[in-house]
């Protein structure tokens, strides 16, 4: 466990808790893409199928349970409890356009042609693009609430920190995970435009607005 990976996981936990906090306290899912949260649910379920079969550590298992349960809770809040506040008209990204390619790629590129490894690869590829509906929604609505932009910053930072972790592990342990690294780079690059807006606007106390 490198420091970067721990920082990345904590940033990930922060993002998940920030989102739950925002929806719960404002009793509203306004500005949140339900499709992105649905895909995150798929990401965790397909990645952590080994939750009951392979025990890595208490930390590892705890985080898996946290990620799965928090993402299910988030989807429940958006599509059920605060359904009336879900802004479906602006959440129009076609999920099949990312789910199908991720599945096809997982069938081609995986570490073993087994259900578990194909499911794991699918999860890694899907996570890389799962944020797209949310980023599209921000551009469509033209702005994001401050806490939503902090959520996105924490979420984007998590995999960016993982990249540092992978560099660290390659340098010290001499091996790397090509599938995770490739997808992790794509995932972080997709936040590029958002990071720019975040640092030039939100940090200065202004609202995150996507300039028309």
């Amino acid at each position: 466990m490198t420091l970067f990976r721990l920082a990345g996981d904590l940033s990930h936990v922060l993002a998940i808790l920030l989102l739950l906090y925002k929806i719960w306290t404002t009793k509203s899912a306004a500005g949140i893409s339900g499709k992105t949260q649905l895909m995150f649910c798929m990401v965790y379920v397909t990645r952590y199928l080994d939750l009951f079969t392979s025990f890595i550590s208490v930390y590892n298992s705890t985080m898996k349970v946290l990620f799965i349960s928090a993402s299910v809770a988030t989807v429940y809040l958006i599509y059920f409890k605060f359904k009336a506040t879900y802004d479906g008209n602006h959440d129009t990204f076609r999920m099949e356009f990312v789910i199908v390619p991720a599945l096809i790629l997982a069938l081609i590129w995986n570490y073993a042609f087994t259900f578990f490894e194909i499911s794991w690869a699918f999860s890694i590829f899907l996570e890389a693009v799962a944020i797209l509906p949310q980023l599209f929604m921000v551009t469509k609505t033209g702005e994001a609430e401050n806490i939503t932009s902090h959520y996105l910053f924490a979420l984007g930072s998590y995999r960016a920190l993982y990249i540092l972790n992978w560099i660290d592990r390659y340098y010290f342990e001499g091996h790397w995970d090509p599938i995770a690294v490739t997808a992790g780079i794509v995932q972080t690059v997709l936040y590029g435009d958002f990071f720019y807006l975040y640092f030039t606007r939100v940090i200065k106390g202004r609202k995150l607005q996507v300039l028309p």
Binding site: D9, S54, A112, W120, Y162
Partner: peptide
């Protein structure tokens, strides 16, 4: 990570 020993990262 290793295809067989499972993936040790989240």
């Amino acid at each position: 990570f290793s295809g067989h020993g499972g993936h040790d990262e989240l």
